[in-house]
Design a binder for these strands. Sequence first.
DNA 1: CAGTTCGTTCAATCTCGTTTGAACAGTTAG
DNA 2: CTAACTGTTCAAACGAGATTGAACGAACTG
Lengths: 163, 163
Amino acid sequence: MATPLGRTRLEFIEVAGRVCQIVGLPRSVGQVYGLLYLSPRPLALDDIADQLSISKASVSTGTRQLAAWQAIRQVWVPGDRRDHFEAVGDLRELLRSVYSGFFSPKYAKTGRKLEVLLSTLEAERREGSVSRDDHDFYKERLAHLVQIQSRASKLLPLMEKLL
Amino acid sequence: MATPLGRTRLEFIEVAGRVCQIVGLPRSVGQVYGLLYLSPRPLALDDIADQLSISKASVSTGTRQLAAWQAIRQVWVPGDRRDHFEAVGDLRELLRSVYSGFFSPKYAKTGRKLEVLLSTLEAERREGSVSRDDHDFYKERLAHLVQIQSRASKLLPLMEKLL
DNA sequence: CAGTTCGTTCAATCTCGTTTGAACAGTTAG
DNA sequence: CTAACTGTTCAAACGAGATTGAACGAACTG
């Protein structure tokens, strides 16, 4: 079969690419994953580049990225010495690893920064560079942030479980 | 007071800007909100532009955006005919409105698209343009997506409640 | 050992969306 | 009415980062 891309696949690849773009990832990464996710057979690097009409370079970096996240895996196809790729079936596992590898660190960093801000604030108060009223105002606002942060810290693990 | 930006504010504005950038919003929007959130007094458009060293144009569009989300409100300061802005205290309310105004629609759209894909797939099967095996494969993959979608549809309202 | 075939790397290019300066319209003040 | 001031709009500039083509190195092939 000449494997013409069906309307279904095209639509899906489009969506996958767009999702990646929104999250701040290269569109090509999403396209590659989308193509592989809906591909009954593993595809070689060339095939991917051809079908998506993007350069091998993009596919090369994209596949490496996706493989690092274990979103796709490299499979060996007898009689072909090229690398072939297929999407890992369990999408939930992927979401989980993306979360713990990308989102969770950022989140933790934010938490630490918040603490730093609080101590900085106290320091500035002691220096007298902030009036009492302003100090109280700032403290209230930061306290609100801390509250949200703590709520989120309870919510996120829950998400991981339920998803 | 000449209101020199304290280290605290600078740090916070930096973070707010970065967060916006990650979510795909203009950095300036985050900066404006960050500045206002930590400002004990309402600020005029000029003040914001000055303190952030960005153009009035950016501030103008930014404030309008933020006001539309009710993240900030316009307040009248006696004796000054310029518009002044202050951040709305309740950040949770903001998160909720951002969710329902931006995220939720996108999510619904995705759901609809998924259904379209399923029917398209069936159509292609009937046309005979897809082999039975491939059809089954596609169906399985799409079913997985639908499953994730339905789980998420239960999770998101929960988030809204707990946050 | 040449000659291919693959995959990766990297500098150059291109693309997209933010940012800006300048012009504009509306409003107040003298 | 004119002048000053405020906020908005818009085309153009700019910058970040994705994409690409070409060159390279490695692995196979005959």
